[in-house]
Design a protein around this nucleic acid. Structure first.
Lengths: 189, 189, 189, 189
DNA sequence: GATGAATGAGATTTCATTCAT
DNA sequence: GATGAATGAAATCTCATTCAT
């Protein structure tokens, strides 16, 4: 399995993402994915062992592309700057990849999620924790339970970007700054 | 004649909620609900026309019980106090009804949601908007786009309560206060 | 069973007949009959052992009322006159009881028909045969296989009356006479 | 790739026809059709969207095969000859395809019949009307309402062929001629 | 007798997966 | 590898019948 035709995998991923945002994760069938990707349904099984595998692979792919890939490039920056870069990039990614985000959200809370996927999810959180801890040391972040602040950042980004997409609001620089100020006010010391 | 039993609807609702938090909204079948509620599968259809109807009714029921029913009792309070009461109650409700919250979350982003249910959802948001506007007038709330602050409050409450449940953390008074301070800092002027 | 409340049986019969002509014999459910008759579904089972019994009883009832009850009163008449009286009465009955005829027709060729009902059906045919035989003796009826002529009379009456009802044509005296002439021409010697 | 097999539709049609004549249109289930046709039940839905579609397609198929396909070849013949050819062929078809006729009859008066099927049914009737009109012009057919004569021809053919099958009577040339004479006497001028 | 809620077998239909070509 | 017809388990839903009241 795999390394057969990377284009085909992309096609399948795109079809899955589009369909999910159109009809929802329930009602998403392998046949409909195949049809949208202009493939035979059997072909899906050449690239993925099962529906569950396909969805998990897709989720991981999106997670890496939209979030994890961001981290290496910001590690050298000062802390508040790091938050800002991550915040603005996550927001931008989410708004310009809204179908992907719909998929990720619906998938994240479905029972398709495998143990392995769950673990991957922790990586980003763990990075945030490290950042918050450093912030506490530098006395610029509130000295309170990390989980609390992470929930705020995570939930806010999620909900806000979803709303932008739902109401078709353009993500201006001003909106990005305003929204960042709000969450910085929340966690700053 | 056997009398149509009001507790039966509760039994069905409870079974549905429990099952969803156990196996997820996909994999939730009418037969499994019937079995868990110790009813014949046909009986479900006496009380609800279809699976979709059942789920929507349940969601509405939970929404009213967990959020909307709260609003009348706080309207006379000063604004920050209102926020506090709502915040603490929503958190308490969500933590002590974690299965219900799992259901609500999974249902909310499924394609089972009917138009009517969607509208009900707006009621709470609309109340929050009114509160924020009053806060702006009183100069105690930031004069920025409501949607931004609502996303923060909404997303935070969602994510934080989910995390508490997931990690089995007890919701102490101190945790409630800390979490409130964070979000108040975010929106206060 | 029975002799409990004859009004109730009539009500059930009427409801069944109306419903069948509205929605067809398939799609006819015991609950819908009960609803139309403004009874509880359980009540149907006080008067009839099963759906099959109900339908067979109704068919027999209609057969006697619409056809068999006619025969005694014509036996003394001359042959052609007998044919005419039967023809005109059958036609009149069928046109003014079109729902009943729809029921009879759909039921007749369904697999609900019991052995006993089948036998009752033969009674009318057997009377017709006797008439045709007498006609042959009197040399006014073609000397050919009875089954052939019976099919013609039977099928014609059936189809013609159905068409009158379907196209909402009034059954005038002239139409009755014309139609009789046609079938008399067919069988007359 | 397994190739979509044209004979499969025939197999399904045959199974449906046989089953209907065995157990009746009510009691006819998709599973039983599948079993008789030695297919998985899901396979039926590859060829037909629903039970209703299957039955309508089958009816149309039989109608064309048994009646409509006959018409082109007789158009050049003199009128009485046309009647004769149609009569004898319809009779022969119906007797040697008795199961098909049972299906057609039960289906025709069920509520499965779609609007489209209804229209197809009119084609044959409309051809008969044209023939009768020509017959009137040539002064060889009674100058009376067509519907009356059509009912006779149609109802007679139906009923007579059903009786032949039911009583297992062989359709001899003599029987065919006798039966034709009867109906010709009915409509001739 | 009358009611109608409850039952559960069974109907139609869907869909992840397999497999012959 | 690619195809899509075929599979059949399982889902949703229906309905004749029963039975507690």
């Amino acid at each position: 399995m795999r390394v057969k035709d990377d284009t085909k995998i992309s096609t399948i991923f795109e079809a899955t993402v589009e369909l999910t945002s159109e009809v929802g994760l329930n009602k998403l069938t392998m046949s409909s994915i195949a049809e949208k990707a202009q493939l035979a349904s059997g072909t899906l099984y050449i690239y993925f062992d099962s529906k569950e595998k396909l969805l998990n692979e897709l989720y991981k792919h999106l997670l890496v592309r939209g979030t994890l890939s961001l981290l290496p490039s910001v590690q050298h920056l000062p802390l508040k700057k790091q938050f800002w870069v991550i915040w603005s990039n996550v927001l931008k990614f989410r708004v310009s990849n809204s179908s992907e985000v719909v998929f990720m959200h619906q998938f994240r809370y479905s029972s398709y999620v495998s143990e392995e996927t769950n673990e991957l999810d922790e990586q980003f959180l763990s990075y945030l924790k490290t950042m918050l801890n450093k912030g506490k040391e530098e006395l610029i972040v509130k000295n309170i339970d990390n989980r609390l602040m992470i929930s705020l950042l995570y939930g806010y980004a999620n909900t806000f970007s979803r709303q932008l997409v739902k109401d078709k609001i353009e993500l201006t620089d001003s909106l990005m700054e305003q929204s960042f100020r709000v969450c910085w006010d929340a966690i700053k010391s």
